[in-house]
């Protein structure tokens, strides 16, 4: 193991190609050879794209930026699993040492009505931004804050809030779910703020608004299959969904309907 000792792989790739949101897509098959096991999955795509450009064919569009598992931009559905065969990582963190010589790999975009395809493997996840804009914040203007150490937060609460806040907004949870539910994503933000003293004032209003926006965006219902948690690269736990359900019920019961 270790770098510099990479073996070489020859692979068959079946990749989803779709000109734009309106066009009909289909799979395209490509052979790639000389892929080092030290490469990342996206570097393997770089090699393929170089080859396509060389042949005068349009390269495959895919989303990526940080290539270290934190921006949440990369989003490939690989052999039927969001972010590929290994748990706990993003597409860009997947390395070719997870594959064998001769493998056939099928690569598709996230599939969900709320995430329409833009081109090839690129989808529109702006629904997530609209959900956050509906209430995923603490209403504090710049300059209103008091000294940071005036708010004491038990380490356990701070750590739990941090775990929920680690969500990168990639959408794998939606892609993994047969109902295309966004519950894991939404509940992570609801939980983070519900766990902290700063989030208390708007606690009820927040969960109601965010859930309502989530429904409006056309995400499906949660039927507790747990597929989202299994595929989440950041280990966001189902407990968050349970917490959000409690928060939501509590808020609905105690908030007067207008």
């Amino acid at each position: 193991m270790g770098s510099g000792n990479g073996q070489m792989l020859n692979l068959t790739l079946k990749v989803w190609r779709q000109k734009n949101g309106k066009a009909k897509g289909s799979f395209e098959t490509h052979q790639v050879s000389g892929i080092s096991t030290d490469m990342s999955f996206l570097e393997m795509f770089d090699v393929l794209n170089e080859k396509l450009i060389h042949e005068g064919k349009e390269p495959i569009a895919f989303d990526h930026d940080c290539r270290e598992g934190i921006c949440g931009m990369c989003s490939m559905y690989i052999n039927g699993r969001p972010h590929g065969p290994k748990g706990g990582i993003t597409t860009c963190q997947l390395h070719m040492r997870s594959f064998k010589n001769g493998d056939t790999i099928i690569v598709e975009p996230w599939r969900s009505a709320a995430f329409p395809v833009i081109k090839d493997l690129v989808v529109d996840r702006s629904a997530f931004d609209r959900i956050i804009a509906s209430g995923g914040y603490v209403s504090v203007n710049t300059g209103n804050a008091k000294d940071a150490n005036n708010i004491l937060i038990p380490k356990t609460a701070a750590d739990a809030a941090f775990d929920a806040a680690a969500c990168i907004g990639c959408g794998a949870c939606v892609a993994a779910c047969k109902n295309a539910s966004a519950m894991l994503f939404v509940s992570a933000k609801v939980s983070q703020l519900a766990l902290l003293p700063q989030g208390q004032v708007e606690r009820k209003e927040r969960v109601l608004k965010m859930v309502s926006q989530m429904d409006e965006e056309g995400f499906g219902n949660c039927t507790n299959t747990g597929a989202c948690e299994a595929e989440c690269p950041k280990g966001i736990s189902l407990e968050n969904i349970a917490r959000m359900n409690r928060e939501f019920l509590g808020a609905e019961l105690t908030t007067a309907k207008k």
Binding site: Y137, V138, V140, T142, G143, N144, A145, K146, D147, A148, N149, I151, L152, I153, P154, K155, A158, D159, A161, F162, A165, Q192, L193, L196, Q198, G199
Partner: peptide, 20 residues
Amino acid sequence: NIIDQCVAQGVPLAREYGGL
């Protein structure tokens, strides 16, 4: 002021057992 602002927003910065 930056730290104050971020904490007020709910940014979960690392804490000691005493909550500081």
